[in-house]
């Protein structure tokens, strides 16, 4: 028996190509002619000091900010509109909707019929069976973030953009959510912004470290095993040290 992708059909994973991207936020030139490729079906973690433009790059990929110059496209050369799902560090659940209706928000907004069966299946997948009709206020922070993950999966997009998705929950919940996300997002092109080097090393197929102004991308090595990795296993500790050194260099000017 072949195991189906846990999060459903990825809709054909696609490369994300950033071409000569220039972006100025206020007076600050965040990017100037930045080019890079996010490989299809893999998780790429973006690290770097605060204010370097990680979240801005993610928002530009999500189509929420228009670049000054250059473009961000899929492997087929077309724009990414309608092909990305976005997950934020806060759950962004609408407080008046039940968990199930929050998961189905995308379909409502697009005027499509909501697939209650799929919503229930995805909520069960993230471990929230029996909580479908609860409002966000009745759920814990970790549970809300699971609902947000189910909502992201419900969108069933080829590209998933995550901005520090697990930074607001406690350490143990974060660890479990990382394992869960890594499993259910397998096969999709995931770009994950994080401040946490350990999270990046656990989840990333590759690591991009942003530094400088305008920002440049430098790649960093990942441990040998496939994600989600255990922090004490194999060459994880060595990679962790390398990454910390690299981040320290990029952050040299900061206090």
């Amino acid at each position: 028996m072949t195991e189906p992708e846990p999060g459903g059909n990825a809709g054909g994973a696609t490369t994300v190509v950033v071409e000569k991207l220039s972006l100025t936020l206020g007076d600050l030139p965040l990017f100037d002619g930045l080019s890079t490729v996010f490989p299809a079906g893999q998780t790429t973690c973006l690290l770097g000091p605060s204010g370097v433009g990680k979240s801005t790059l993610l928002r530009a990929m999500a189509g929420l900010i228009a670049p000054t110059n250059g473009r961000i496209v899929g492997g087929d050369g077309r724009g990414l509109a309608g092909r990305v799902a976005y997950m934020d560090q806060s759950d962004l659940l609408l407080p008046w909707l039940s968990a199930r209706d929050n998961v189905g928000l995308g379909a409502r907004l697009r005027g499509e019929p909501t697939d209650a069966t799929a919503a229930h299946r995805l909520l069960a997948l993230v471990g929230l069976r029996g909580h479908e009709t609860k409002r966000p206020a009745a759920l814990s922070g970790g549970m809300r973030q699971r609902v947000a993950l189910a909502r992201t999966l419900m969108e069933d997009r080829a590209v998933v953009l995550m901005d520090e998705p697990f930074s607001a929950v406690d350490a143990l919940t974060r660890f479990r959510l990382q394992d869960l996300a890594s499993t259910v997002l397998r096969g999709r092109t995931v770009v994950l912004v994080t401040h946490d080097p350990q999270e990046a090393l656990r989840l990333g197929h590759q690591l991009f470290v942003l530094s400088g102004s305008p920002a440049q991308i430098e790649k960093s090595g990942v441990p040998d095993l496939p994600p989600p990795r255990q922090p004490t296993f194999g060459d994880f500790p060595a990679r962790y040290q390398d990454l910390m050194d690299q981040l320290a260099v990029g952050d040299a000017g900061a206090p």
Partner: peptide
């Protein structure tokens, strides 16, 4: 604003379906 941003990634852009965003968000 982040609710609106989320809604825009779902509808496919800031100019898509403004009345659906009004009604549901």
């Amino acid at each position: 604003t982040r609710w609106i941003d989320l809604a825009h990634t779902m509808t496919g852009g800031p100019r898509a379906r403004p009345f659906a965003v009004l009604r549901h968000v």
